[in-house]
């Protein structure tokens, strides 16, 4: 009974981290630095859901789709006005990393000024997020949706990468962007699409967070820690690596809380990261 409940929670945490790691992985592999502004897209998704659905009282599906699109647009604009220019100037990756960090800090501060630094819950009434009984354990409707929708998104993205023109272009740029340009792939266009996609995935995770637990502006940075750890542990250069890393992280966190207590939850991801980096510096899965 308890075990079953914990398994369901682990599954829900796994799906949540997978989503974050996949979206992050797309930009990481194509531009080859830790794009912290991804945390900004996560926040934008959360706060747009809160703003449109709860404050303006717009229909649920319309506001979710809009927040989805706006978070994609956010990362696209970040690319267009910051990273694209830096890439064209052949700036060092450290410079780009700091720029992305600045974007996240500015987004988080801006949202804090607009909506306050306190918890913002997207649900109009918390009792709207009802619970569903699953063979003796319970999950709320948001967790059920995220568990069912996330695998669909993952397989859709896997298909996109394998079979479509855009997927091939994406993989070519990940391998070697200069050669890809030589064979006629539009680097700018493909990167814009990648950023839009990555922003939407991050925004989706943010929407889930806002509906399930509520969100604060500071979590844009906090969420980057498990995201980076999941990507690096599983293997940065592999699509499935992020999902594997997310699984390890989710299981480790649950076990930590059960056996050592909740205050250790942030120490464990770091410990795993360091151990894996010693044994397999490239991450578990290769390219």
């Amino acid at each position: 009974m308890v075990l079953w409940q914990l398994l369901l929670y682990t599954l829900s945490a796994w799906m949540y981290y997978s989503l974050l790691a996949i979206g992050f992985g797309f930009t990481l592999r194509s531009i080859k630095f830790f794009n912290f502004s991804y945390g900004g897209a996560f926040l934008v998704g959360s706060y747009m859901a809160f703003f449109l659905y709860r404050m303006l009282g717009i229909n649920f599906f319309v506001s979710i789709l809009c927040s989805f699109a706006i978070s994609g647009l956010y990362l696209l604009l970040c690319y267009k006005f910051v990273f694209s220019i830096l890439l064209r100037r052949k700036a060092k990756t450290l410079v780009s990393l700091i720029a992305s960090f600045g974007l996240l800090a500015a987004t988080s501060a801006g949202l804090g000024m607009l909506f306050g630094n306190q918890l913002s819950l997207a649900a109009r009434k918390l009792s709207d997020i009802y619970t569903i009984d699953i063979l003796g354990a319970s999950l709320n409707i948001v967790q059920v949706l995220s568990i069912t929708v996330t695998p669909v998104i993952i397989f859709f993205l896997a298909y996109l990468r394998r079979k479509t023109r855009f997927g091939v272009a994406m993989r070519a740029i990940e391998d070697d962007s200069e050669v890809a340009e030589l064979v006629g792939i539009s680097k700018e266009g493909t990167l814009m699409k990648i950023f839009f996609l990555s922003g939407m995935i991050g925004g989706f995770a943010g929407i889930i967070q806002a509906l399930d637990l509520g969100n604060i502006p500071a979590s844009g940075l906090l969420i980057m820690l498990p995201t980076v750890v999941a990507s690096v542990v599983g293997g940065m250069w592999s699509f499935w690596g992020g999902i594997l890393g997310a699984f390890i992280l989710a299981v480790a966190q649950q076990l930590t809380v059960v056996f050592f207590g909740g205050d250790w939850i942030q120490a464990v991801p770091f410990a795993i990261l360091i151990i894996i980096l010693f044994i397999k510096p490239e991450g578990i899965l290769k390219r």
Binding site: M1, V2, Q5, L6, Y9, L119, L213, G214, I216, A218, S219, L222, Q253, Q254, V257, V258, G261, G262, D263, I265, Q266
Partner: peptide
């Protein structure tokens, strides 16, 4: 007897063990 980090909002696992 358990505690959680000041920025933690996810207390599901602790509450599950408490429920048991």
């Amino acid at each position: 007897d358990d505690s959680f980090n000041p920025d933690a909002k996810d207390l599901k696992t602790q509450l599950t063990t408490i429920k048991a």
